[in-house]
Nucleic acid binder design. Structure first.
Lengths: 210, 210
DNA sequence: GAAAAGCTGTTATAGTTTTCACATGAAGAA
DNA sequence: TTCTTCATGTGAAAACTATAACAGCTTTTC
């Protein structure tokens, strides 16, 4: 995983922070105010030691004898993850999947705002989805640069994914959430995360007896 | 990760096999017949040694001096992952997300067949989606048992996810692909995989300078 | 108010995963 | 044929990650 000016905190630790945050959100929803590494660990199937160790990379967020104040820990984790602000995201591809993404509340709820939509299909360009109008691919580079957008979600057919990814990189995007079932080749300062539900299913079938 | 009668092959290795398979699919689409651990590794950003070692857990699939025959390796990996057959999957929740899942071609293309749909909303029950009719939750247990379904995709609102998961487990489901942003608590013989795109985004923002 | 119980942060230890490096076999060139 | 090149599979070493264990601070109990 690419690393920039950051300290050398293992990427695997970073990957767990959003999971911790998600669990804290649930606890907070339930009205709970304090938790412990033990409780969190039980919920997540992770050892309490690991949680304490992960958090200790960023400072002491807890209190001996008491545990962690949930709201405070959420705040700290958001700060570490750089999500104590809103991020604008471009969405490329508004087929069934893209539309579902555009309508999904979970992004906005957690600070990711879909700020523009693009599709190469002339029949889709001009459609209104949510608050925005689908723009043609030709407008992509300009729009992204004008708005200073740095994150994109890629929901185009697999055949076009690499090509669109190249365009995104040229436009200044530095993080791509890729829904197409293909490994993208990108310069190493570009982050890519993959969403491929079939991978999840295949991983489970390995453990299923016939 | 739960492990059953299987050899003790690390779960992290199992997790990479679908990625290898996906890359092989792309190569095959391009008409290529042979590849090497080096080529695969370059595409995936993984060392060639790791690929060879991973594959070696399951036997020697390659040929020294030549590399791997793509079709043969695909076949072997499918066999290892238990996907040299079709799997039926239940889908619970047919909101925007569930509908997009139901329409997504990628599942059927890779051997996962959505065999029944459920929703608790009476307004949705009875709707036709794809080839199937949305059934009420009350019909879930019976339908899953009758069809012998073992995998489920969970696309219900986060508030109901744990409760529905409990029902699924009671019905005999042993693998859950969970789209709700919550960690499920399940007996340890149950597999769970999480699809939470926001986690992917949050993981990327960590590396973005302000 | 003293003792007990609870929980963090951290150092030391154990375990896992990745990389290295090379013996060995296959294919092609001379 | 013989030599060179290429690529696998694998044991050993290195790097990384997780667990265990405990000192020290907090809160609760009696």
């Amino acid at each position: 995983m690419a690393s920039n000016g950051h300290d050398n905190i293992p990427d695997i630790v970073i990957g767990r922070l959003p999971i911790y945050l998600r669990a804290l959100n649930r606890l907070a929803d339930d009205g709970q105010e304090i938790t412990s590494s033990h409780e969190l660990g039980q919920r997540l199937g992770i050892s309490s030691a690991q949680i304490r160790k992960d958090l200790s990379h960023f400072g002491g967020f807890g209190k001996q004898g008491t545990g962690y104040q949930i709201e405070y820990l959420q705040e700290k984790l958001r700060k570490v993850l750089n999500i104590d602000r809103e991020w604008e995201v471009a969405l490329i591809g508004v087929g069934d999947l893209g539309k579902a993404i555009a309508h999904y509340r979970g992004f906005a709820d957690r600070g990711f705002h879909i700020a523009c939509l693009f599709d190469s299909d002339p029949a889709k360009v001009g459609q209104e989805i949510g608050d925005y109008t689908v723009q043609p691919m030709a407008a992509l580079q300009q729009a992204i640069q004008d708005k200073g957008i740095r994150l994109a979600m890629l929901a185009v057919p697999v055949q076009h994914a690499q090509e669109v990814a190249n365009t995104l990189v040229e436009s200044g995007i530095t993080g791509i959430l890729n829904y197409a079932p293909i490994n993208l080749t990108v310069p190493k300062h570009i982050q890519v995360q993959y969403i491929d539900p079939v991978v999840g299913l295949q991983r489970m079938t390995y453990y299923l007896e016939d």
